[in-house]
Computed example of a mutant assay.
Amino acid sequence: MKARRIRKRLHRMELLLESPGLRLQRRDGCFLIEREGQPSLKLAPAQVTQILAGRGILLSSGAIRLAAESGIPLMLVDGQGQPSARLWSPHYGSIATIRRGQVYFAEGMAGRAWVAGIIAKRLRGSARLLAEQAPEEDPVCLTAMETLHRQADRIEQHIETEGDWRARLRGEEGSAMRTYFAGLPRLLPAGWAFEGRSRRPARDPFNCLLNYLYGMLYSYLEGDLIRAGIDPYLGVLHQDEYQRPVLVFDLIEAYRTWVERVALKVACEHMDPPVDWFQVREGGWWLLPPGKKVIITALQAYLSAATDSKRGSRRQRMQAACHALARRMTRARPDG
């Protein structure tokens, strides 16, 4: 049975249900996870923080009501790990002050400074990854590291205040990241080599891993923002994309390097892409259940690992960052 514990703290967990045929039901005030011919798993609502259900999972109305009544977000995720639907209580979990301040924050200098810091963090994290794992004196990686640090310095020191600052910031980030993704393949075994980023669909096995891991990260961050009382559809750098959680697109940049480290570790443990992990169709590469099992387990271990005694696990740091952002938004006022 693939009812995996993504995070566990004081017996609380995030569940990923992704094996077709699993049934999530309600029994005696608890969640019951069943599959024909296998032992069932019973969990009290107090043990569960979030439920992610993949394709082919059967959800009873009782289980859905129990999740809503208990304030547990329940998401349906697609084959790439990205949320396609979210079931949630009809009541917001916070006061409107946060969302009112979010409008001021998104349009003011406070938001610009925040998102510039997020992008700079992304660039420096990428440079650090290359510095730690690149072959010694590799010219492509050295060029990428120099570019990433230079652009991060520029973004932090010169926060745009006039004109189309969003387009300029995205352009600066994009040019730096192209050099990063030119250097990243040099950290991989030859069988995983790739040329540049490719999204939907992935053009190679490594981008396929990245796409699925990014998708899971989107799911986590969207839920974290909602629980912190923040509207994920009101962004700062990314704006006005219909039915898309654009603030997640801003925030995820702070954490992309984490999943890139996970993908690198998995790839380096398998010199060539295992044939049973992938399917090539519709002009791209798609991850199959055996591959999902490996990278989900790897991501679970990475996010749940304690980084230090004060800040807790990486997963806890993500959640704390969303609550800290909510506090900043509460203090936001109109500029001028």
Results as ranks from 00 to 15, higher is better:
228 A>S: 11
141 C>N: 01
93 G>K: 11
141 C>G: 00
228 A>R: 07
313 S>W: 09
153 D>Q: 10
77 V>A: 04
323 H>A: 10
257 T>I: 09
108 G>H: 07
44 A>D: 12
213 L>G: 02
165 W>G: 03
220 Y>V: 04
72 I>Q: 07
332 A>C: 09
250 D>M: 12
117 G>R: 07
163 G>S: 12
172 E>A: 11
326 A>R: 05
202 A>W: 07
125 G>W: 13
217 L>I: 03
87 L>G: 04
277 W>Y: 12
82 Q>N: 07
276 D>G: 04
210 L>S: 05
170 R>Y: 00
76 L>A: 12
271 M>S: 14
243 Q>A: 15
330 T>P: 01
25 Q>G: 08
41 L>A: 05
230 I>N: 03
322 C>W: 06
141 C>S: 05
76 L>V: 12
103 V>Y: 14
292 K>N: 05
200 R>T: 01
248 V>E: 02
190 A>V: 04
171 G>L: 11
315 R>V: 02
303 L>T: 11
317 R>M: 13
225 L>F: 12
46 A>D: 13
96 A>P: 05
52 L>C: 10
269 E>M: 02
46 A>H: 10
12 R>T: 13
17 L>H: 07
335 D>M: 07
3 A>R: 10
104 Y>S: 09
153 D>P: 02
70 S>A: 15
255 Y>V: 01
291 G>F: 07
285 W>R: 00
323 H>S: 08
189 P>Q: 08
203 R>H: 03
267 A>W: 02
305 A>D: 06
111 G>C: 09
306 A>V: 14
169 L>E: 08
336 G>H: 11
272 D>R: 13
52 L>W: 15
13 M>W: 12
196 G>P: 01
280 V>D: 00
157 Q>I: 00
303 L>I: 10
275 V>A: 15
119 I>A: 08
83 P>C: 09
23 R>M: 08
289 P>F: 12
251 L>T: 09
14 E>H: 11
189 P>N: 07
214 Y>E: 03
17 L>K: 06
268 C>S: 09
89 S>D: 12
127 A>W: 03
310 K>Y: 10
298 A>E: 06
336 G>R: 12
330 T>Q: 15
279 Q>D: 08
110 A>P: 03
34 E>S: 14
96 A>D: 08
301 A>K: 15
69 E>C: 02
28 D>V: 03
212 Y>C: 01
103 V>R: 15
290 P>L: 05
84 S>K: 14
267 A>R: 03
322 C>R: 05
54 G>W: 13
117 G>V: 04
229 G>E: 02
312 G>C: 08
47 Q>M: 13
77 V>N: 04
300 Q>G: 05
7 R>N: 10
37 G>P: 00
17 L>W: 10
138 D>Q: 02
41 L>M: 07
242 Y>W: 14
147 T>F: 00
313 S>I: 03
52 L>I: 08
83 P>L: 10
36 E>A: 15
204 D>F: 08
300 Q>Y: 00
187 L>N: 02
240 D>T: 01
191 G>H: 06
231 D>P: 05
289 P>E: 12
290 P>H: 07
231 D>W: 14
200 R>M: 01
191 G>F: 06
173 E>Y: 09
223 G>D: 14
96 A>T: 10
182 A>I: 00
121 K>Q: 15
234 L>H: 13
161 T>G: 11
263 A>Y: 11
224 D>Q: 14
50 Q>I: 00
101 G>K: 11
